[in-house]
């Protein structure tokens, strides 16, 4: 087809052109023609600076249908245009290490609107012989405070290794370059202060195959002898997980995780004759609904 298409009116189009309107011409044809149409566009119209009217607050349809039925309809209207409540349950980690028959989980759920949500988190680990070694549950009020950041406050309750309650303040955010990051500070009922920092990154190898480096650091503001925790950086876990998203919501993975105790915590572990570091291969499932 010829390239000069912007074109012009098919003379047979049957449009009745007002005589005052010049027929459209092909400006690209290169013919020396006078400008074909009025030079002025709407952009050239002067725009006044009249003041807007006061904000109108009445609802016209009330006069026709009554304010009761209209009020009910308005409530529905608001709910259906931004007011929806949504829930999500996501198992970030649900995994098994054949060596040592160890398992671990990290699951989070939330319910609410865009700004205010109720969040529940749980994580823990154990081994098939020893049973659950560590388990905690958090109940949090979560509030979106900026584009990518939620702030969360609430309680953490440890079931294992010993029952303990903490006040919790957490931040959940997306950092530049798509780093997922989470930080939390915990104040126990005994006055101990702990902190946790987590970060992960999704490296999309293909549309469905995703490699995720992940790190989690535990910190303490003081020695906590009954938990074998020394002050400062206590433990760290570094993982590399390769998942396949059969569907976005359902992705089995394989991976490797390296765990290590640092500083005084490491020294305490050594003193008890325990290993300071460990590496394990894992299989797991990341799923959400």
């Amino acid at each position: 087809m010829p390239a000069q298409s912007a074109a012009p009116a098919d003379p047979h189009a049957g449009h009745t052109m007002p005589a005052s309107q010049p027929a459209p011409v092909d400006p690209h044809a290169g013919h020396a023609m006078p400008p074909p149409s009025p030079a002025r566009t709407g952009v050239d119209l002067p725009v006044g600076d009249a003041a807007p009217p006061p904000v109108i607050v009445d609802n016209l349809a009330d006069q026709m249908f009554g304010s009761g039925p209209m009020q009910r309809a308005r409530v529905t209207l608001e709910n259906e245009h931004g007011g929806s409540r949504i829930s999500k349950v996501q198992a970030d980690l649900l995994e098994w290490a054949p060596d040592g028959e160890r398992y671990g989980w990290e699951v989070e759920g939330w319910y609410g609107g865009d700004i205010n949500r109720l969040a529940i988190k749980t994580e823990g680990e154990g081994a098939s012989r020893e049973g659950v070694e560590a388990a905690e549950v958090q109940l949090l009020y979560s509030r979106a405070v900026s584009r990518y950041t939620d702030v969360q406050v609430g309680l953490r309750y440890d079931l294992e290794p010993r029952s303990r309650t903490y006040a919790t303040l957490a931040v959940d955010t997306m950092l530049p370059y798509w780093f997922e990051a989470e930080g939390a500070v915990f104040l126990s009922s005994k006055g101990d202060v702990l902190a946790r920092v987590e970060g992960s990154y999704d490296l999309r190898l293909t549309q469905r195959l995703i490699l995720q480096p992940r790190a989690e650091l535990e910190l303490a503001a003081q020695d906590i002898p009954e938990s074998d925790i020394g002050s400062g950086l206590s433990t760290g876990e570094f993982g590399l997980r390769l998942r396949y998203e059969i569907r976005r919501e359902f992705a089995p993975y394989i991976g490797v995780a390296y765990e290590r105790a640092f500083g005084d915590t490491g020294r305490l572990a050594r003193a008890h004759g325990e290993a300071v570091e460990s590496t394990r291969f894992i299989v797991g499932l990341r799923a959400w609904f």
Partner: peptide, 13 residues
């Protein structure tokens, strides 16, 4: 306006 068919704006639905 009352024939425009938007529940909560023009009529109750």
């Amino acid at each position: 306006t009352h024939m425009d068919g938007v529940p909560g704006v023009s009529f109750p639905g």
